[in-house]
Amino acid sequence: MPVNETLSVYSDLCYAAALAVFMLGLLLHAAEYGFTRKPKQRAATPAAGVAAGGVATLDRPEEDSPGGAVGPGVRDRRPLAARLGRMGVALTVLAAVLQLASLVLRGLATSRIPWGNMYEYIAALCLAAVVAWLVVLRRHPVREIAVFVLLPVVILYFVAGTFLYAEAAPLVPSLRSYWIIIHVSAAIVGSGILLVSGMGAVAYLIKSAHERRPERFRNLGAKLPDLVALDRLAYRTAVFAFPILTFGIICGAIWAEAAWGRFWGWDPKETVAFISWVVYAGYLHARATTGWRGVPAAWINVIGFATVVFNLFFVNLVVAGLHSYAGVG
C-alpha cells in the first residue's frame, strides 16, 4: 500500500493553514476581551442596557440584539467587541474545515484511518474539541470563554504539528484491526469534548474566585459568563462525554482481548484511562452531593482533564507500554 505523497503534502498544507487561521481567530477572541467593557462601566451607560432590552440579556448586554440597537446616539452597529468575537467564531469554523480537510487528505494519502500515530491522534482530537466547542456555542451564550477553549487547542495543534509530526505511513500490524476505527475515535471524541468541559470548569473557577474576592482576576473575572452558565456548560459536556469515554474503554478492552490475549492488563495507558474514568465518575457524583457542588466539582473536572492530558503525553512519550504507537523519535 503505497503512500500518496501529493495528497500527504496537501494534508500538511491544510494543517499549517488551519493552525494559522486558528491563531488569528484566537487573536480576535483575545481582542474581544480587550475591547469588552466591564459590566460596571456598562451599567453607567443606561442607553446600551435599554437598547439591548429585557431581563434575559441584562447580564450580557453586549450580546447581539436582534435588528441592532436603537438608542439615541447609538449607531446601528454591534459593539466592536462583539464584532471581533463573531469574526473569531467565523475563523474557528474555517479552521475546523481546514482541519477536517487535512485529516481526510491524510486518510486518503495512506488509505487508512487518519489516527494511527500521536500526531494524527492529536490533530483529530483538536478537531473534535473545536467541533464540540462550536456546537456548544450554538446552544449556550458562552462566547466569552472562547480563549479558554481555543488556547489549549492551538497549543496542542502546534505541538502535534511540530514536535510530534510523523510522515504519512501505513499502520504497524498490531493496529490493523477495525477496532482502531471504533476504539480510537471514541477516545478522540470523548477527549475532545472533555477538553471543552475542563476549560469551562477552569473559567468557572476563575469566575468564582473573582466573585468571592472581586480584586482577584479583576478584568477577566468580570467579563466571564455567570457561574450558572459555566457550570451548566461543564456539566452538560461532561455528561455527554462520559458514556463515550466508557464506550471507548470497553472497546479498548475488547480489542485488547483480540490483540494481546487479555481484555485488561493494567498497561500504563489502561491504568491512566481507569484513573480518568474514576475521576469523572467522581465529578458526576460530586455535582449531586451537597457540599461538593460548585468549586470542588469544578476542581475535580479540571483534575479529570489533567489525567487525560497526562495519558496523552506522559504515557505515550515517557512510559514504555503496549500503547507506544506515538511514532516519534
Binding site: 500504563p268 491504568t271 484513573i275 474514576v278 475521576v279 467522581g282 461538593w292
Partner: peptide, 17 residues
C-alpha cells in the same frame, strides 16, 4: 463513596508511574 472513589484513583497512580 466520593472519598473512596478518589482514593481509588489516587491509589492507581503508582500503578501507572
Amino acid at each position: 463513596a466520593l472519598v473512596l472513589l478518589f482514593l481509588l484513583a489516587l491509589a492507581s497512580v503508582p500503578g501507572a508511574l
